[in-house]
């Protein structure tokens, strides 16, 4: 079985993925295929391996076996290929001693963005941090750091977004802002894979739900078909 996407519409293909920690399989023969433009919520209990799956997709964790293809090539270890991916993890990936502009400029340079200055400035504007853009990140609240992290992950306009609990630390206003941002990215046709242990606020605009259970995707369903999957529906009800 090849991880080569069979048609151009496939954006994320994972075949027979295995990852062990302490000889215990966290991900145990996991398969998932996601179409371009999907906004898929990854649900599952804490510690079930959602973070591990996203970090493997982001190229930060090496799987023990299995194949992964993102976009139209399976050479996900190729440096240029990483340009397609935007990842937001549990950590902000920001430097405490630099301000917002300096942090984002560093990343803009690493991604070799042309007109970096303009992009950074717009990006900071978009997450509403213009007023504190010259302050060191050390002085930011948790919510401000999270918003800057969102800006960081979107800076290079990636086709595929991997978001790990992006609502953590956001206040009500920040969460609403992220809702809108996700919807607009979804409309633009980006592929979004989002881990959330409380998925409810997302169900209204997500396209798919994937349920990670016992190291594999137990259910993968379009949101409107959830009633046809009683187990998944019950699980979502439970985690509300």
């Amino acid at each position: 079985m090849s991880a080569q996407p069979s048609d151009t519409n496939r954006q994320i293909v994972v075949n027979d993925l295995v990852k062990k920690y302490h000889a215990r399989s966290v991900l145990n023969h996991l398969f998932i295929t996601m179409d371009k433009g999907a906004l898929c919520i990854l649900v599952g209990d804490n510690g079930v391996g959602k973070t591990t799956l996203l970090r493997i997709l982001a190229g930060l964790v090496r799987p023990d076996s299995g194949e992964i293809a993102i976009g139209n090539s399976s050479s996900s270890r190729e440096p240029q290929h990483r340009r397609m991916i935007g990842y937001l993890g549990h950590h902000s990936m920001l430097y405490q001693d630099l301000n917002a502009i300096e942090n984002l400029t560093h990343y803009a340079r690493l991604y070799q963005l042309t007109q970096a200055e303009k992009i950074v400035s717009e990006s900071i504007q978009s997450v509403d941090l213009k007023n504190s853009q010259y302050q060191m990140v050390r002085t930011y609240s948790r919510g401000m750091q999270q918003r800057l992290s969102v800006a960081r992950s979107l800076l290079h306009d990636p086709e595929v977004l991997l978001l790990d609990e992006p609502y953590t630390g956001l206040d009500k206003q920040g969460a609403q802002f992220l809702d809108m941002r996700l919807q607009s990215l979804h409309r633009q046709g980006k592929t979004i894979f989002l881990a959330a242990h409380r998925p409810h606020r997302l169900l209204s605009f997500a396209s798919h739900v994937a349920w990670l259970k016992d190291g594999a995707i137990a259910e993968y369903s379009p949101v409107q078909d959830i009633p046809g999957h009683p187990d998944l529906a019950a699980y979502l009800q439970e985690s509300a």
Partner: peptide
Amino acid sequence: ENKAMDGMLMAPVD
């Protein structure tokens, strides 16, 4: 500290 290394590891450079 904030896993900034991850950010660099994901950049499109060797």
